[in-house]
Simulated assay, not measured.
Amino acid sequence: MTGILYGAGVGPGDPELMTLKAVRLIRENEVIALPGPDARETVAYQIAVQALPELAEKNLLSVDMPMTHDKEEMNRNHQKAADIIEAYLKEGKNVVFLTLGDPTIYSTYLYVQKHILNRGYHTELVSGITSFCAAAARTGTSLVEWDEQLHILPAVHKLNSDLSLPGNYVLMKSGRKMQQVKEILKSSGRDVVMVENCGMANEHIYRSTDEIPDDAGYYSLIIAKELKGRHD
Rank of each mutant, 00 (worst) to 15 (best):
A44D: 02
L171P: 00
I47W: 04
Y218T: 05
D83Q: 14
V31C: 01
A51R: 15
G101C: 02
S62V: 08
N29V: 00
A82G: 10
A135N: 03
I223G: 07
D102C: 04
T141G: 01
L153I: 14
T2W: 10
R138C: 02
E124V: 13
S142T: 14
K177F: 10
A136C: 05
R138L: 14
P35C: 09
G101Q: 10
L25P: 10
R76Y: 09
W146P: 00
S188M: 04
S127G: 10
K21G: 08
E145H: 01
M65Q: 13
A134Q: 08
V96N: 01
I152C: 03
Y111L: 04
T99R: 03
M67P: 02
I152L: 05
A33V: 03
T139N: 02
L227T: 15
R119E: 04
G189M: 03
I222D: 06
S62F: 11
Y109D: 00
N197D: 13
T19F: 13
K225Y: 06
A39D: 00
V156A: 14
K93E: 12
L125Q: 14
M172H: 06
G7C: 12
G92K: 10
R40L: 10
H78C: 13
K80L: 06
Y169C: 07
A201V: 07
L163W: 03
G13Y: 08
G140N: 07
L185P: 00
L61W: 09
E124P: 08
Q149F: 11
L55W: 10
A8P: 01
P213Y: 12
Y109F: 15
L159A: 06
Y121I: 03
E203N: 14
K158A: 08
K158E: 09
D147C: 05
P66Q: 09
D191E: 14
E54R: 12
P66S: 05
Y106M: 01
I105E: 00
Q113E: 11
A201S: 15
